[in-house]
Design a protein around this nucleic acid. Structure first.
Lengths: 203, 203
DNA sequence: ATTCGGGCTGAAACGTGTTTCAATTGTGCC
DNA sequence: GGCACAATTGAAACACGTTTCAGCCCGAAT
């Protein structure tokens, strides 16, 4: 989270993001990160326990970014399906602009490190919150465009959670080269159709 | 695949599985694998280009194993949902017996290495094939209990693919400690309900 | 039998994530 | 100012994935 982060840590995270943009996960060499952020290697490790933790911090950065864009221009559309897909379109546009970064963050996220459980849960919470708002076509904000808790009903939670799971798996497939971004969106659309059709249709 | 693998390679993979069972991903130290399988490190690298590739080979091993069990005792049940969940129960029983191994294989799988794309596609193919058979309540075999191609219709493909995606994401969550195995199965059940309900109900 | 070539071996080396530690610096408190 | 304490630094060391290479072995072709 940008606002709650100290100067030095922020510089470290920003450097990590830069390097990841240029050369992906492997290009984020912690010695380079430290040097480029004018910090000793030990300091970096005092703030971030591992390379994965550093990149997950970068992910939080980017999610805040996404929420900003989501809040400013929420996806419109007639149906739940359209709005939900509008959200995923938004995400994909962000991904495509910086594919190396995206893959690097995905790799960090899927390290399976139990130390990162909390942060991962927080990440999913943010995504699902946006999904709930897209479902509702109602983006509730507080100050500065920060999003509020939409207090989802069980149906909304269930749908958002399921969509998020499918999305995560598709992202992984994309990162590994199983499918390109357009087929990823196609698959997401048909899966979302399935899920929305199955949920007590309010059509 | 066990049958198509040469003696030495098989010994290497089996050693990797043993070590992973005992201590997970990090315990699979390639020097140890090489020593324990009586080959030089260079030989190991001639057969497997990376640690991930070695563990994905181990995954193929285990999937063949799963198919065997699936073929011998296919999940029964009245509804599609019951049979599909029977399949996931089967998988979970396998996971729980060797959690360290399971997490290690998941980690390898999610490395995002584009070199492994083919193998990953093959893996998903196998899982989805079993899902289709569970949907149909018809396990088509050829000799030795090997499974045949069920030639899924579009609806079946769609469902199987979606369920597989959800399952993958849930496994990742389980591996990272986000949820335990029982809540993983609960989530899978409610997601599967949603998906099956959304697919032209043949009830 | 000789030769050839490819795989195997053993060992060393490299790169990078991670740890360690003594010396230094900065900061709040008296 | 002087002190205590924590953070920072620089540098070295360690662990492990990965690469490299010179020498050896062995089966096939001549």
């Amino acid at each position: 989270m940008p606002e709650a982060m100290e100067e030095r840590s922020r510089r470290i995270v920003e450097t990590a993001i830069e390097l990841a943009e240029q050369g992906g996960f492997e290009a984020v060499r912690l010695r380079d990160v430290a040097a480029h952020s004018q910090v000793a290697l030990g300091t970096l490790y005092r703030r971030f326990r591992s390379k994965e933790e550093l990149l997950v911090a970068a992910l939080e950065f980017e999610v805040a970014n996404l929420e900003q864009r989501f809040s400013v221009r929420p996806p419109g559309g007639e149906s739940e399906l359209d709005r939900v897909m509008g959200f995923f379109d938004l995400v994909v546009r962000g991904l495509l602009r910086r594919q190396n970064l995206a893959r690097a963050l995905l790799k960090a996220v899927s390290s399976g490190d139990p130390e990162l459980t909390q942060k991962m849960a927080a990440y999913h919470f943010h995504i699902e919150r946006m999904l709930v708002m897209a479902l509702r076509d109602d983006v509730t904000r507080c100050a500065q465009g920060k999003l509020m808790d939409p207090a989802p009903c069980p149906r909304e939670s269930q749908i958002a959670e399921t969509l998020n799971q499918i999305w995560y798996a598709l992202l992984m497939g994309w990162a590994g080269g199983v499918h390109g971004e357009s087929s990823m969106l196609d698959k997401m659309r048909s899966s979302a159709q399935l899920v929305l059709r199955g949920s007590s249709p309010v059509v």
